[in-house]
Structures are given as structure tokens and as C-alpha cells.
């Protein structure tokens, strides 16, 4: 966890962010969510003491308006009120219906309120399968062109020989 790239810091506490889209892939996502649709976001508490602190979560469309640390805004698509998570993990099941820029906000209530924000894109990324599919198409096209050129060259070389006969 020390060199964790998917780490989220709230006050002095750390959480680990993981995204899943089980209907399209078994891959884990660290930041951006490649497809729209059902998504599971999991926040794991790296610090044990975070399990004793109420945590709230808000996922909202990033409409450009900076509303400070306000939670449960009109642009919210999901809001989980403050509660404690003794298991050290928050599982967020959300359906992103539209592609675009979103912002996640995690607030902890440890005497004072601290909020961490994590912006992410949905439906704009290249999924691994799509990337592989495009690579396959490009490689197939390149091989096809090469074979066509080879065959054309061979026919052109054979033509005079045929006419000599």
C-alpha cells in the first residue's frame, strides 16, 4: 500500500479506491471508469482508526460549478449518509447512465469535517477488450495489405513469363 497509486487521502487517513464493472470486465479500475452502466466502487480503509469514524460518500456529476464541500447536491447521483464501517470497506453500487466527468466526495466526521474529492471520467476510457479489438483489426489490416501486395507482385512477375510461352 505504500506505493499505492489508487490511494485517496482524507485528513491524515488513507483509503484505497477500486472500481469494478463486472458485467463487462473482470478488471479493476483505479481512476477512470471505461464504460457507462453498473459499476461497483470499493473504498478500503488503509488506516485501522478510520473504522471508528463516520464516513459519508457522495457521487455527483461534475457540472463545473464549484460548490465547495457540499454533500448531496442536486447533481448527486448517489449519497450515503455518515456511518461507521467496522469492516473497513465501503461498497458503492452505482449505475452510471451517462458518460462524462464525475466527482466523488468522501467526508469523515472526526470532530471536524474533512472532505476528499476524487474526480473521474466515465465512459470515455478505452477498455482493455476494446483496445485489443482495435489492435486486432489494425494488425489484420496490415497483414492483409501485405499479403495482397505480395500476391500482386507475384502475378506481375509471372505475366511476361506466361506471354513468352
Amino acid at each position: 500500500m505504500e506505493a499505492d497509486q489508487c490511494k485517496l487521502k482524507v485528513d491524515s487517513y488513507f483509503m484505497h479506491f477500486t472500481g469494478y464493472q463486472p458485467q463487462s470486465s473482470r478488471a479493476e479500475f483505479c481512476e477512470d471508469i471505461p464504460e457507462v452502466g453498473r459499476t461497483i466502487i470499493v473504498l478500503d480503509f488503509v488506516d485501522q482508526s478510520l473504522r471508528d469514524i463516520p464516513v459519508s460518500v457522495n457521487l455527483a456529476r461534475d457540472d463545473g460549478a464549484r460548490t465547495g464541500d457540499t454533500m448531496n447536491t442536486p447533481s448527486s447521483i448517489l449519497y450515503i449518509p455518515p456511518k461507521k464501517y467496522p469492516n473497513g470497506t465501503i461498497k458503492i453500487d452505482v449505475n452510471f447512465e451517462q458518460a462524462g466527468r464525475y466527482i466523488g466526495m468522501v467526508a469523515i466526521e472526526n470532530g471536524e469535517r474533512n472532505v476528499a474529492k476524487f474526480p473521474f471520467d466515465v465512459g470515455r476510457g478505452w477498455s482493455l477488450i476494446r483496445l485489443l479489438a482495435w489492435c486486432l483489426v489494425l494488425v489484420s489490416a496490415a497483414i492483409g495489405t501485405f499479403l495482397w501486395a505480395l500476391r500482386r507482385n507475384a502475378i506481375a512477375q509471372n505475366l511476361p513469363a506466361a506471354s513468352e510461352k
Binding site: M1, H16, T18, V42, D44, V46, N87, G88, T89
Partner: peptide, 8 residues
């Protein structure tokens, strides 16, 4: 057996 420790 449920806990974030599996992931951590």
C-alpha cells in the same frame, strides 16, 4: 470472513 484486510 469479511474485512478490507483481504484487499489491503
Amino acid at each position: 470472513a469479511t474485512d478490507a484486510v483481504w484487499e489491503l
